[in-house]
Design a protein around this nucleic acid. Sequence first.
DNA 1: CTAATGATGTCCT
DNA 2: GGACATCATTAGA
Length: 224
Amino acid sequence: MPQATAGRPPPPFDRALLAGPTLEAARALLGARLVRVGHPTAGDRIVGRIVEVEAYLGGDDRASHARMGPTPRNRPMFGPPGRAYVYLVYGMHRCINIVTEQEGRAAAVLIRAVEPLEGIPAMRRSRAATRTPATPRTPDHRLAAGPGLVAAAFGIGLDCNGLDLCDTASPLHLAAPGPIAHGQPADTVLAGPRVGIGQAGEPAVSAPWRLAIAGSPALSRPFA
DNA sequence: CTAATGATGTCCT
DNA sequence: GGACATCATTAGA
């Protein structure tokens, strides 16, 4: 399991990887780090490894929030790549996306699960301030094991909308994946249908655009 | 173990 | 009115 990554800050995330096709961006985001600094209440520095994402394409993707064109809610999806798109789901949970492709082409990648690396006590404090507190029995690796839990654990609110996630000066940003130890096998990537989009119909329902790192204990739910 | 359900804002048909 | 890019808890097999 990843450990002891606190020594030196990892390099920022390359915006060029987000400016291209969304499925490639989604693939590149697996293994990247999500970094929270200057948390409003929990303080400290929170870092985790992105282990599960979903790709939402603009235009033809009937499951995407952008399918009806720009609205006040989805406006960030039409902006430049690398920015945050945060929204409220089910009236109570927040989800965070990373905007992809060129400005004007609405697309984004939803972060569905993150494996905690640093600032675990701060993550627990952050969860405690939400509707979905962690209990003492919640294992560390389950603290951000779902899209709503990622936002809860990292203290992500609608105020994070539009933040530049490729800028390490942002209170919330991305960092490049950690180095692969010599001789270690590359991660196996799982692909399956996206979760909770039954209304979209085919082909959106069956498109295998949910991606994850095989074997992570932090996945939101198993793959088929 | 799986299934049902409540909470609850926003946008859809 | 219905469904939702969700989560936790309770009821049941």
